[in-house]
Amino acid sequence: MNINTHRQIDHALCGKPLMVEDGQSRVEMVTTASMAADEKGLVHGGFIFGAADYAAMIAVNHPHVVLGASDVKFLKPVRVGETVTAKARVQEVKGKKYWVSVSVLRADEEIFQGMFTCFVLDKHVLD
């Protein structure tokens, strides 16, 4: 598995890559107590979004890929201790613009879906 982007991402916060190949990726994230939004153990949606975003970035897998926009839906809540898997696939490419669909599942149940608009830049966004 050759990952060319987001190499310093914290896998505890955004998930661990399971597969990266041919415009596709799969990222697994085990939710932890530090992700809880409340005393009932509801995982804050930002962590689910982070795993989906990371999956989109490594599906594009270019050193200078950045997120430009997203259209997402949170379909089901996630509890602390549950494992989720983000599956991403590049759907379309026009020049430097990539559209990546992402589905996040808990077992076989879809809990999140989104379309991420990514851009591959000529140089690092901070340069």
Rank of each mutant, 00 (worst) to 15 (best):
D10M: 05
I9N: 09
G114D: 02
V30D: 05
V80H: 00
M35N: 02
G41W: 05
S25Y: 01
V20F: 00
K87N: 14
G45I: 06
P63F: 12
M1K: 06
W99N: 10
A86C: 12
S34E: 11
H11V: 12
E39N: 04
V78P: 04
A59H: 03
R89D: 08
G46D: 03
H62V: 07
I58W: 05
L105G: 13
V20K: 01
H124E: 14
G95N: 10
I3G: 05
V30Y: 00
V60N: 04
D71T: 15
D122M: 01
L18T: 13
F47I: 09
A56C: 07
M29I: 13
Q91F: 09
S34L: 01
Q91A: 15
E109P: 05
R106H: 14
P77F: 04
A107L: 08
L67K: 00
L121T: 07
V102H: 01
H44K: 06
G23W: 01
F112Q: 08
F119S: 05
Y98L: 01
V78K: 02
V120H: 13
V102T: 00
I48D: 00
H64T: 14
D71L: 15
T32E: 01
M57Q: 05
H11Y: 13
V93S: 11
A107T: 10
L42E: 11
N4Q: 08
Y98E: 02
S25E: 02
V65S: 07
D127E: 14
K123S: 14
R26D: 03
T31M: 00
V100L: 14
Q91M: 15
K40Q: 13
R106G: 09
D10R: 10
P63Y: 08
L13M: 12
L13F: 03
F49I: 00
N2Q: 07
A86V: 06
A107F: 06
C118L: 12
L126R: 15
K76E: 15
E28M: 04
A69W: 06
E39Q: 11
G95E: 05
K73L: 12
V104D: 00
Q91L: 15
A55R: 10
A33I: 04
M29E: 04
V102L: 01
Q113N: 15
S101R: 14
H64P: 01
Q91P: 10
C14E: 10
A69T: 07
A107N: 11
S103M: 13
C118I: 05
Q24N: 13
E28L: 04
V60G: 03
T5L: 10
I111V: 14
R89Q: 11
H6E: 04
